[in-house]
């Protein structure tokens, strides 16, 4: 019974589902392509610092004001293991 009262309205469920659905629809980017982008980013960043490629994450998201059609943005979460000293790079 308590569950019944706490249940989200079907309107809210629809909105939540749409939000997630439209992000992936708008981006139109295949998982294979995401994997390629990920390996390429890892390659470039590795030139400058030692990163944890195992735990690195990339995702595409939409951020922005409600009134404007939000542009998709690429987010990368890359754990750094060690900063290589600048001498090694120059």
């Amino acid at each position: 019974m308590r569950n019944f009262f706490r249940r989200k309205s079907s309107c809210q469920i629809a909105k939540d589902r749409l939000k997630i659905l439209l992000i992936s629809d708008r981006v139109n980017c295949s998982p294979e392509m995401m994997e390629l982008i990920k390996t390429d980013i890892a390659k470039v960043i590795s030139k400058y610092m030692k990163i944890d490629t195992e735990n690195m994450e990339i995702q595409i998201n939409t951020k922005g004001s409600k009134s404007e059609r939000a542009k998709p943005t690429l987010y990368a979460n890359i754990p750094i293991v060690d900063m290589l000293s600048s001498k090694d790079n120059i």
Binding site: S9, S10, C11, Q12, K66, R69
Partner: peptide, 19 residues
Amino acid sequence: MVKRGDMMSAQDVVDILAV
């Protein structure tokens, strides 16, 4: 249905589609 929370309101749809 909108009042009952069982249908998205016009504002909800406009917010999502931004047109």
